[in-house]
Amino acid sequence: MMVLTISKRICVRNVQFMLLMGLMWLVPLGAGAQSLPNIDVCNDCSSDLQFSQAAFSATDLFPGQSEDVYVVNVTNEQTRVFRVTLIITGSFGDTSLDVSITEISGDPAVLGDIATATTTFRNFNDALIQDIDAEDLDLSFDSALDLIDAGGSSASGLRRELQEELTDYYSDFWRSMITDVTDTIDSLLDKFLAESGLDAEYDIVVFEDGTKVRLKIEEVGRVASDPLTIIIEFDVDLESITAPGLNFVPVEPDFSRFSASDLDYDLAQELRDLAFLFGIPVVGADDVQECRSSWSCGVDRCTVTVSC
């Protein structure tokens, strides 16, 4: 058991002391205490000192009061419980305030709720970190190249579609995890979302043709009218699009440094469509579905060769 005592000696005159004692009588022990336990999120806490300091900082005690604080490192799924007590010691006119911080076992029911909430929260965070197969989303397009703006394209609408589908996907996943949780666990998840936040900064969608795109997580929130719903706002990062065999993915009508090798038929077709929308002529062998192609581009055109 860890016990930490912090003492601060204060010298007070008669009037000050009487005011202090009067304040103690005016505010009964336990006044202002929350009906739910005091739970503090501290993802930076690892040492005894850090946990105990977090427990102390989470209290607002009057002399003579004590409070139990559950300090939670959500990232590491670690919870420690401390009883913080503020005590007046000494004689009249020469008084000190002692802060006692003692680690205790805590309420098993509360610890169980915290454990369930942290595990649920981490599982959701881990799901966000994983790449998403585009086939798991109900999309009207089949390549990340379709998201690139080009003359006359509908890319902006497709980007909105991807953002909305991804939001719905994770909302359904969240709903499946918390449908049967208690109100206490639900409140803890709200607290973790607000105070811990998600580790995931972006999500990656992988398409059947091998192209990938990253979507930045802009905001995460819950709907007050529907506690089972979570809303994640995404922003498509066009600069992040990659494709196998391409030295880079052109997002502007400049193919002068572009090259590609060993492309399969489907990806080559997507690339041809993109070059056409950008107004870049593509010359060379006609498409042959059983063949693979290589591309080399200059300032004003791209040349394609195939190998079968």
Results as ranks from 00 to 15, higher is better:
Cys45Ile: 06
Arg122Glu: 10
Ile114Tyr: 00
Leu61Phe: 09
Gly106Pro: 08
Gly112Asp: 12
Tyr70Met: 05
Asn73Phe: 03
Asp98Phe: 03
Ser100Phe: 05
Phe121His: 03
Thr102Met: 15
Gly64Ser: 05
Arg80Val: 00
Asn123Cys: 13
Ser91Phe: 13
Ile104Asp: 04
Ala115His: 05
Ala127Leu: 05
Asn76Gly: 07
Leu29Met: 13
Asp44Gln: 13
Ser91Tyr: 12
Thr119Asn: 12
Val71Cys: 03
Gln50Trp: 11
Val81Cys: 02
Thr75Met: 13
Leu26Ile: 10
Ala31Asp: 07
Glu67Met: 07
Asp40Phe: 14
Ala33Glu: 09
Ile88Lys: 14
Ser46Cys: 08
Glu103Gly: 02
Thr85Ile: 15
Asp44Thr: 15
Leu26Phe: 07
Ser100Glu: 10
Thr85Leu: 15
Leu26Ala: 15
Asn38Arg: 15
Phe92Arg: 08
Gly64Ile: 11
Ser47Lys: 09
Thr118Phe: 01
Ile101Met: 01
Gln34Gly: 13
Ile104Lys: 10
Val41Glu: 00
Gly64Val: 09
Val71Gly: 00
Leu86Val: 08
Asn43Met: 10
Gly90Trp: 03
Ala109His: 13
Glu103Lys: 07
Ile104Leu: 07
Ile39His: 01
Asp60Val: 07
Ile87Arg: 10
Leu26Arg: 12
Cys42Leu: 06
Leu49Glu: 11
Leu36Asp: 08
Ile39Glu: 04
Ile129Val: 09
Thr85Arg: 06
Asp48Glu: 08
Ile129Asp: 15
Ile101His: 01
Phe51Tyr: 05
Asn76Val: 14
Asp68His: 10
Ser91Met: 13
Pro37Thr: 14
Thr120Gly: 06
Asp98Glu: 11
Ile129Thr: 13
Val71Ser: 00
Gly112Ile: 00
Thr89Ile: 14
Asp113Cys: 01
Glu77Val: 04
Glu103Cys: 04
Thr95Met: 14
Asn43Asp: 11
Asn43Trp: 14
Asp40Pro: 13
Asp68Pro: 14
Asp113Phe: 03
Asp44Ile: 07
Ile129Met: 14
Thr116Pro: 02
Leu111Thr: 01
Arg80Cys: 03
Cys45Gly: 06
Ser100Asp: 14
Val27Trp: 12
Ser57Gly: 12
Asn43Leu: 09
Phe62Val: 15
Gln65Asn: 03
Ala55Met: 09
Ile101Leu: 02
Ala58Leu: 04
Gly64Cys: 02
Glu77Trp: 08
Leu97Ser: 04
Arg83His: 11
Thr119Val: 15
Phe82Lys: 00
Asp94Leu: 13
Ile101Ala: 01
Asn125Phe: 03
Val71Asp: 03
Ala54Leu: 01
Val41Trp: 04
Ala54Lys: 02
Asn125Val: 03
Asp107Tyr: 06
Ala54Gln: 01
Asp98Met: 09
Ala33Asp: 09
Phe51Glu: 00
Phe92Cys: 09
Ile87Met: 01
Glu103Asn: 04
Ala54Asp: 00
Thr119Leu: 10
Ser100Ala: 12
Leu86Lys: 13
Gly64Asn: 05
Ala109Met: 11
Ile87Glu: 03
Thr89Lys: 15
Arg122Trp: 06
Gly30Ile: 11
Val27Ser: 06
Val27Ile: 14
Leu36Tyr: 12
Gly32Pro: 02
Phe121Val: 01
Val71Ile: 04
Cys42Ile: 08
Leu61Thr: 01
Ser105Gly: 09
Ser100His: 05
